[in-house]
Simulated scan of single mutants.
Amino acid sequence: MNGITARPGLGRVVVGVDGSPSAHTAVMWAAAEAALRGSTLCLVHAAPTDAPVPFLSEAEIVRSRQAGRELLDQAAEAVTARHPDLAVVKELTDGPAPGSLRRAAALTGTIVVGHRGLGGFSSLLLGSVGLEVAAGATTPVVVVRGAEETVEAGTVLAAIRGEADTGCARAAAREALLRKVPLRLLHVWSVPLSVDPRAALRNGCDRIARDHARALSSVSDRIQEEFPNLTLHAEGQKSRSVPGALVDASHHADLLVVGGRRSPGYLGPTLGRITLALLQHAHCPVELIPRQGPGHGSTS
């Protein structure tokens, strides 16, 4: 199996445009991703002009839509300058950004957002739009983190917790094949702060390590069978902090792929603590693959 046969599993790329530096970085990343896939890039700007008449005058609605069209035109020009052969479509919508992005992505697209928008809360590690899109993800979502111009690490990294993350590993394999780089499957399990690692080994924690190794091996063997031409590395690691270890590993990756929790919380769909930490702190773009089937209740 090669990069061409992997492409049917990757739909068009949809990216939000709001005029912020973070969104510009996301647009350019999304353009490069769409070029790799040989798919269409869809630029979406949500101009919330569907409010009741008393709150927005006709002139304000016209100005808002015109500003949105200009932002889309500028983004399209920047993309075309770097990727002249890329098919680009522009969508100006009236509703909230998260819903607009989801509708544009439909059932097979990938949504790309910057890690911070134009909101006034600069201390937030992940903007409200990105957070809402990721929390309610039904299709893959990429939160673009890191500098706009970075040195390629030459690796796609996938965070693997167990067999429930086979779909995540499969998506990461397709991304690695597109980039013609190796895939690193990393399984990290936690060691309680109160436990002395040397004492843990004496007390039989080596058996737990073997159990974790089997879980990782099950996923890696399956992925290698499905993608025989893929260079695959599987690594297990114990750590005091699972998110900390994964954030450190993201220093050396072009893309971090992680499975997302899809269980209902008291405020609706939620993100697990590990996934949220990665979306907030990773040093490279993070692709969130919605989890389906058993295992929704993971805290990851």
Rank of each mutant, 00 (worst) to 15 (best):
T110M: 01
A147Q: 14
E235T: 08
A209D: 11
A34I: 10
L271T: 03
V257S: 01
R82D: 10
S218T: 15
R69E: 15
T25A: 11
E77P: 01
A176F: 01
A169V: 12
P84V: 12
V247C: 12
A199S: 07
V247Y: 05
R273E: 14
F121G: 02
N203Y: 14
S100E: 03
V195A: 04
A59F: 15
A158W: 02
E70Q: 13
K238R: 14
L41V: 12
L72K: 03
L56S: 08
G95N: 02
N2H: 13
P98W: 01
P269Y: 01
L216A: 07
S218K: 13
L124N: 06
W29H: 04
H83V: 14
G236E: 14
P96W: 03
D196Q: 05
L92H: 00
R202S: 06
E163C: 10
I223Q: 02
L107Y: 07
R214V: 15
H187E: 04
S39W: 04
A78Q: 13
A35C: 09
D248G: 06
R222D: 12
G162I: 11
G154T: 12
G268A: 12
I160S: 05
V112K: 00
V62E: 15
V13S: 11
R145D: 00
Q292I: 10
R103S: 05
E33T: 03
L125M: 14
E60V: 06
A213N: 06
P52C: 09
R116N: 00
F55A: 12
A59T: 15
L71Y: 03
E225M: 07
T49N: 05
E175A: 11
R174V: 09
A282G: 08
I223Y: 06
A171W: 11
P98A: 09
P192S: 03
R184E: 10
A245V: 07
L36P: 01
V141L: 05
K180N: 14
T93R: 08
P98Y: 03
V151L: 15
V13M: 11
L43G: 09
A200W: 06
R291P: 02
H296E: 11
G297A: 11
G136Q: 07
V129D: 01
E225Y: 03
L131K: 06
Y266W: 11
R240G: 07
D196Y: 10
